[in-house]
Nucleic acid binder design. Structure first.
Lengths: 187, 187
DNA sequence: GTGATTATTTATCTTATGATAAATTCTTTG
DNA sequence: CAAAGAATTTATCATAAGATAAATAATCAC
């Protein structure tokens, strides 16, 4: 749990009693490379923290596998469109490497907010940061060319290109694998 | 203020004292069509509620005006990437019609969270909903064709196409005005 | 209401990216 | 470590959308 609490400390420090209580609704889980952590059609009731490894959220459009996002060590992952609406998700979460996660029961977590305002504050800040990320991503998808998006990613997150198969990176960037390969080929 | 409180009631009802306190940090402001409500380079310190009219958030990419989003009556607007990071925004907010807004001082609002947990809860829910919207928009920009995006918008938000000049709609969809016109032309 | 400005459409040509297929290279597993 | 399978690249062709320019339509200001 140490990794989780270190990360929380950076976002919004919570008091010892809240840490204790939070611990009680967490459990560590392992998934080997390639395995789904949460399936399509399942309603999201868990917030994960990536302790070790990488995961992706993906879905299918007309039988094509599309990666919505990646999350590396020290990040939180959940399928927002399901977690916040209570509807089944059309997306899955998959381990890209052998991955260790801390699973937080979202129902219990949200209930704690009534008695632990610092946990609600913490969560709000996590969501705010995620929201800023997605807004920036919309900007990049709106009018940047595929090549610009690739180069920006290469610069901002070289880890992605080292640890993630290119076929997943391609759909994340909104292009086909063949196009990405062509773009990489140019110098 | 009635419109604001009706909308809040739908999201997360707050107690009368919180309403009173919230009122004290709000003020109504008017902008005529075409006027900027907040300028590029300004650090966002205000959350707006649209009482009447429509606004858009926009920015420039290589001298091209790009619309990031629209907000109609009963919605909240702020430039998240500035509000949550404290950095100056590269974006502006503009009134597309003559618009009446309720301006909420974000610094004061965030301070209230320490004493009014129901206001923090309300705000969290507003952000969660906005986050879900942006995640869905990423999905549409990732692999839908321009024509699919146009038709989806036409179905989901016909108001946008009735009240917003097409040049703004085009960049919102991630295409040029000429392309949008062509797509509309096909039947 | 008329001229000026702005928005939208239409036309033509160009280009980035998609689709498909095949050739490599890399990875896994028995 | 060899064979099988998966990932990546390369090649060719097709197409959706960009760029530019010009025509038309709508809106605004006096």
């Amino acid at each position: 749990m140490q990794e989780l609490f270190s990360q929380i400390e950076l976002i919004y420090p919570i008091n010892p009693e809240s840490k204790q209580t939070l611990s009680s609704i967490c459990k560590e889980v392992n998934f080997s490379k390639g395995k789904n952590i949460q399936e399509i059609g399942h309603t999201c009731k868990t917030i994960y923290f990536v302790k070790k490894g990488v995961v992706r959220i993906y879905y299918f459009k007309e039988a094509i596998d599309i990666t919505e996002s990646f999350e590396f060590e020290n990040s939180f992952v959940a399928r927002a469109e399901s977690l916040f609406t209570g509807k089944p998700s059309r997306k899955a979460i998959q381990a890209i490497e052998d991955t260790t996660l801390i699973a937080i029961d979202s129902t219990k977590f949200f209930q704690l907010f009534d008695t632990h305002p610092d946990l609600e504050r913490l969560f709000r800040k996590i969501i705010e940061a995620s929201y800023v990320n997605t807004v920036n991503r919309i900007e990049s998808l709106q009018f940047n060319t595929a090549e610009e998006r690739y180069k920006t990613l290469l610069k901002a997150a070289p880890d992605v290109l080292k640890r993630i198969p290119l076929k997943y990176v391609a759909s994340y960037l909104g292009i086909t694998q063949v196009s990405l390969s062509r773009i990489r080929g140019i110098k």
